[in-house]
Design a binder for these strands. Structure first.
Lengths: 256, 256
DNA sequence: CGTAGGATTGACCCGACTCAAGTTAAGTGG
DNA sequence: CCACTTAACTTGAGTCGGGTCAATCCTACG
């Protein structure tokens, strides 16, 4: 188990490596262009940056968090546990995704968040959220939009786990993450997804052993390879076909 | 398949049976009390009412909807289909729930909605949403809150389908709907949930036959009975124990 | 060179699926 | 009022996907 925020320093003020004005994500074409006033607000809203290592726990179910984060770099995942330890991974977190909105709105986190790779997070103060809603309806709208997008992804995952076969599920999951990653890849494309087969199993609702055998089929078909403790996609179109998945249809989205 | 909105009349103006001032839901103790100005805005935001029969399709995946709804009475569900017809029910819709927010924000519906009982819906105009965000930050916040709550329920469902056994899942589902219904039951408590075993199967990701055998076990244990084409809960605490579910923890919520 | 986390494999079993009949209850038309 | 239909619920038999157990293998790392 990780340690949560308390023990991890949040750099603020001048310690930032990425002031909003030089945000590495915002120039990407999937993100809608912001007004100057919006950027200014966001810039003030941002309290600092948080660097978390691979494997660290960013947020813990049951905790109250004073912060809200946006992923700048790296990959993480949200999950829930049953009392006896069974784990279900709910979704993955990529650059541009918001972390901890549920906790900010409702008080208590109902899920935990862990880093799959080193991550860099923008830190926002939860208390400023009402100010944002009061003074920047456009940004408020964006936040609802982002929450709604997360809901949509969960719908899709639910469909997958409930109604797809093991092979389809595996293909869907990998194609889905790959497709999302492709949209926010900053700099050189890092084709490698830093997940273990245990993560895949806990996402798909399968056992580790069966997950391994299922992934093996995808590997034999040369749709993916498993290398250096991670997954590389060789043929995303074929994966999508196996999964009967149409692909992401999103055009422009907000980045808070 | 139902017919969608086009063929169904939306009563507006004086045809309304429930002006917001006499909203049957708002007095319930789970809903937070609104300011007079908020109520006035909601009242203008409401365009009319829509009555749908049992079995009717309210919204169809892929469609653009000009409306947003709040459930006043009745029970419905959201679902998605795979191309070959496999269906996954994502969540159930009860009084006080918002329908079609995703479609309103992102343009196209990514899921369909069907009525399980006769339903009465408040109809809102999608175009007025930006006005709401501009003039009523508190309501905007509420809408985000509602979206976030839906996300939370989906997280819980995902955990259930991915990691609970068939018996646990069935117990969880029924306890969950029952618990939610208990909070919004207007007038006499109608203990009967108007769902078929096919709905349960499509929610749990199980086959109809196996669902039947699983429910049979709950019936034998006298936790539920299946009567008149619906489900009645006899012992919700026992159901929760079987499901290892802690129950709903929500206190006050907004009603838009 | 030893250890540990992850990936792999085989053997065996059980939960869940499909197929195939029923049964029950609520219409519907004659 | 009865024969016919249809939707939903049941039940049994046989099969198979996916689970558990138990090794084994790799490879990065101290």
């Amino acid at each position: 188990m990780g340690e949560g925020l308390a023990s991890q320093g949040i750099k603020s003020g001048s310690a930032r490596q990425y002031p909003c004005s030089r945000c590495p994500l915002r120039p990407l074409e999937i993100f809608r262009k912001f007004e100057k006033s919006e950027l200014e607000f966001i810039s003030r809203f941002k309290r600092g940056e948080l660097r978390v290592e691979k494997g660290a726990t960013v947020l813990v179910e049951g905790n109250h968090s004073a912060h809200l984060f946006t992923v700048l770099f790296g990959l993480g995942f949200r999950y829930k546990l049953l009392t006896d330890g069974r784990r279900q991974i709910l979704n993955y977190l990529l650059p541009g995704d918001l972390i901890g909105l549920q906790g900010s709105l409702m008080g208590e986190m109902q899920h935990s968040v862990e880093a799959l790779s080193p991550m860099l997070l923008c830190v926002f103060e939860r208390e400023h959220l009402p100010t944002l809603y009061r003074n920047h309806p456009g940004l408020a709208y964006d936040i609802t939009w982002i929450a709604s997008r997360e809901e949509q992804m969960l719908d899709e995952n639910l469909l997958s786990i409930g109604r797809r076969t093991a092979l389809e599920r595996a293909a869907y999951l990998i194609a889905f993450i790959r497709a999302r990653a492709a949209k926010v890849e900053v700099g050189k494309v890092n084709a490698q997804l830093p997940i273990t087969q245990q993560h895949v199993a806990d996402t798909l609702g399968l056992s580790l052993v069966h997950t391994n055998k299922t992934l093996r089929k995808l590997i034999e078909k040369k749709l993916i390879v498993w290398r250096d403790g991670g997954c590389e996609v060789l043929d995303i179109d074929a994966l999508m076909k196996v999964a009967r998945w149409e692909g992401l249809q999103e055009r422009l989205r907000p980045l808070v």
